[in-house]
């Protein structure tokens, strides 16, 4: 496995942003009411992630260290605005379904986390592969959760009826509480299978604070002085 395919494997399996790192939980829970919504959100984030990694990596020697976080935020916010306008123009049903969660991709920990942890230190092509891997991992996870919720909550899959007629859909799974329920069960399964994740503190993550995601999420926690300085906008 060369270092480019290793990045893909890392994002999809080893450091899967959703199941292992537990990042970007807001969109994960909010938009996975159906498989297509989860997939759409995943692909939108994937596009932003690849482009932001590419641009930030290309500019990594130009952006002064002291103002890197504001600079990253402006880059990411601009990309998100572009993607939002594109979705609004070409996939209106997805725009209506995802609503406010499209602009909120800006504050998705995964994007700033990868910018700071990877793209700021590595050459553009590797950073693009890193974004691709992480984005694919995120898309896969969201689609999976969406499939589970749609299948048991509505009896359909990508809008097509698949459950037999006598199956009574568990409607709560497509509502807000169902999101928490499904995620709880998924993490419990991961715990039961003894997979190391951020949820059982085997993997260091940003401990529930998106703002600290400015520092690399996958490495042991450091003193917050660095974050403090980075926050000086």
């Amino acid at each position: 496995m060369n270092k480019y395919t290793e990045r893909i494997y890392n994002g999809v399996v080893k450091e899967n942003p959703t199941f292992i790192m537990m990042l970007g939980m807001c969109p994960t829970l909010a938009v996975t009411t159906s498989a297509i919504n989860g997939f759409g959100m995943g692909v939108s984030t994937l596009a932003v992630l690849i482009l932001s990694n590419l641009i930030i990596s290309a500019l990594r020697k130009v952006i002064p260290d002291q103002v890197r976080l504001p600079a990253y935020i402006v880059i990411v916010a601009s990309l998100v605005t572009v993607i939002q306008l594109l979705i609004q123009a070409y996939i209106p049903f997805l725009y209506d379904a995802l609503g406010i969660y499209i602009p909120l991709i800006v504050v998705n920990c995964i994007i700033l986390g990868r910018a700071e942890a990877y793209a700021a230190k590595n050459p553009p092509l590797l950073s693009v592969m890193d974004g691709l891997g992480m984005g694919l991992g995120f898309t896969l996870a969201l689609t999976l959760i969406g499939i589970v919720r749609e299948l048991f909550g509505a009896g359909t899959l990508f809008g097509v009826q698949v459950m037999p007629g006598f199956y009574e859909p568990v409607a709560i799974l497509t509502k807000a509480p169902g999101a928490f329920l499904v995620l709880a069960i998924i993490i419990a399964i991961m715990n039961g299978a003894q997979i190391d994740t951020a949820a059982n503190d085997k993997v260091e993550s940003c401990d529930g604070c998106c703002a600290t995601c400015g520092k690399p999420c996958a490495t042991p926690k450091q003193e917050t002085a660095e974050t403090k300085e980075g926050e000086t906008v």
């Binding site: 509480p177 329920l181 709880a184 993490i187 419990a188």
Partner: peptide
């Protein structure tokens, strides 16, 4: 239960609160 300790039980509590 062991598998539900930590994050899962917190999420289940949140689910009940959401209901």
């Amino acid at each position: 239960p062991k598998a539900f300790q930590g994050a899962p039980i917190v999420l289940l509590s949140a689910a009940l609160m959401a209901i």
